[in-house]
Amino acid sequence: MNNTAGNNRRCDDRGSYTLEAALCLAVLFPVLGWIAAYGLAGLGDGTASNAAAAAARAASIAADPDSAQSAGQQAASASLAQAQRTCRSSSISIDTSNFPAQAGDAGAVSVTVTCTVSMADLAIPGLPVSKTLRATRHSAVDRYVTRGGN
């Protein structure tokens, strides 16, 4: 092809699309990996938060600290079991130290759930292998539940 400037050089674009696609994919895959990592972290955070809230509510309507511990553990475990693929490992801590001794007394229960989310499957450079998320929820104890035979 001749152009008007008298230059007989041919313009050949072969291979440029392949190079552009390779460059775009080299940037696109890590970005998609980071988006997936943020999604996994958000899912793990929601799982821990929901489990802590369910456990705090279940513990707050119990009649005594021992049954509050048991009810909270069961509620958190059930909530975490529903999202079994989200948390690689988890722990549940229930604080009943402010549990009231008698009906009518004010009190509260505090539950902390820790959820470790694995990100190893994403295999993105610079991404941690796992992320530990923690959620704490508090619930006022029901004042009108009979306590310890009262």
Score class of each variant (00 low, 15 high):
F29T: 12
G126D: 06
L43H: 05
T114H: 06
V145P: 05
G42Y: 14
A135W: 06
V27I: 13
V117A: 07
T86H: 01
G15S: 06
T18G: 10
D142R: 02
G149S: 12
S93V: 05
M1E: 14
C87I: 01
L19H: 15
M1T: 11
Q74N: 15
R147T: 07
A21S: 13
V27W: 05
L122K: 08
D105C: 00
Q69F: 01
A83R: 03
A71M: 04
S16E: 03
I92W: 02
V31M: 14
T116A: 15
T47N: 10
Y144M: 02
Y144F: 13
A21D: 09
V141P: 00
D121P: 07
T47I: 00
A55F: 02
A58H: 00
L43Q: 13
A120Q: 12
I61Q: 04
A140P: 10
S16A: 13
R137Q: 15
A58L: 03
D121H: 09
T112D: 05
L122E: 07
A135P: 04
Q102Y: 14
S110C: 01
S93Y: 06
D45M: 02
G33K: 04
H138E: 12
G104A: 08
M119H: 12
A5I: 06
T18S: 12
D13S: 15
V129W: 00
C24M: 13
A76T: 09
N7K: 15
A108I: 02
P65G: 05
S16K: 13
Y144D: 00
Y38V: 11
Q84F: 10
R57Y: 03
T116E: 15
F29Y: 11
N98L: 05
A58E: 01
N2Y: 11
S118T: 11
F29D: 11
T47G: 09
R147C: 04
A103T: 14
A108K: 08
T114Y: 05
S77Y: 00
F99N: 02
A5G: 09
S60W: 04
I61T: 03
L25I: 12
A101S: 15
P128L: 11
L32I: 14
A59R: 00
